[in-house]
């Protein structure tokens, strides 16, 4: 059986909010290392991959592999009943029909309990090859969100060009063009404001802004975001979850090609 307790319901609320624009139904795959999720959007352009390690929970118990097939809009409805600071416990039997969610207020004076019906989801599982990316950029997550939203006013796609000079996000549309260039810089007092660029070779790729803006719904989960790029492979956009236990929310986006 599964029994996992999260100190802050907020974490799951935000994860579900961040991915529900891309995916309707998906399996939460539970095993002794934690809860994982992988799903593609309907158009096969974007993929979300989440890992919540057992260490993100206290306690965490899962004896065998359990797939929880969940409709995300139904889960959103149930999670609306959880206050952000509530303690959230997820429970399921082996081969379950429902997942049980319990929300406790931190003052322990209220306990809410919900059972969410599960569904059978036959999900395609993709293998993601280990990639040595040519460029990786670590930057404030809110800055990335701002850039994507601003450039979406200009065009539906953005080119991301990374050289040793910096990283340039550029868009060209009917009304004109726009670009934002970030140079590497360290902020000692506020490290979350730093921009770090790790480059082995220059990269230039184009992506759909609609998807990138969708990914940035994860912004409130982490102060920083990491973009990893190589020519002619999908972009990886990564948010670290719940500090330092290597839990993550990753998005992959197929590049656009040709002109």
């Amino acid at each position: 059986m599964l029994e996992s307790r999260l100190e802050q319901a907020d974490l799951l609320k935000k994860v579900v909010e961040a991915i529900s624009g891309l995916v309707n139904d998906c399996n939460f795959d539970c095993n002794d290392s934690g809860i994982a999720l992988q799903a593609m959007d309907n158009s096969h352009v974007a993929l979300v991959s989440m890992m919540l390690k057992a260490e993100a929970f206290s306690p965490y118990r899962c004896d065998r592999n359990i797939a929880l097939g969940i409709n995300l809009s139904s889960l959103t409805k149930v999670l609306r009943a959880a206050q952000s600071s509530d303690i959230l416990t997820l429970k399921a039997e082996d081969a379950p029909d429902v997942v049980n969610l319990v929300f406790e207020s931190s003052e322990k004076d209220r306990i809410s309990e919900y059972d969410l019906k599960l569904m059978d989801i036959d999900q395609e599982h993709l293998g993601i090859p280990e990639t040595e990316y040519a460029a990786s950029i670590s930057m404030p997550s809110n800055e990335f969100q701002r850039i994507c939203k601003d450039l979406m006013n200009i065009s539906e796609s953005v080119s991301i060009e990374c050289t040793k000079e910096g990283v340039k996000f550029a868009a060209a549309g009917d009304i004109g063009t726009g670009s934002v260039t970030l140079k590497q810089h360290s902020n000692v007092d506020k490290p979350e404001q730093s921009v770090e660029i790790d480059l082995s070779e220059p990269v230039a790729l184009s992506f759909s802004l609609k998807y990138l803006v969708n990914f940035t719904k994860a912004t409130s989960l982490a102060s920083k975001v990491k973009l990893s790029l190589s020519n002619e492979v999908p972009l990886l956009v990564e948010y670290e979850l719940s500090g330092g236990n290597s839990s993550y929310l990753r998005f992959y986006l197929a590049p656009k090609i040709g002109d």
Binding site: M40, H44, V45, A46, L47, E124, H125, L126, G127, I128, P129, E156, S157, S206, S208, V233, P234, Y252, A254, P255, K256, I257, G258, D259
Partner: peptide, 14 residues
């Protein structure tokens, strides 16, 4: 406008 690739061209079925 550039054409949108499919993710399946990069990732294999596991």
């Amino acid at each position: 406008t550039p054409l949108q690739n499919d993710l399946g061209e990069f990732f294999y079925m596991a």
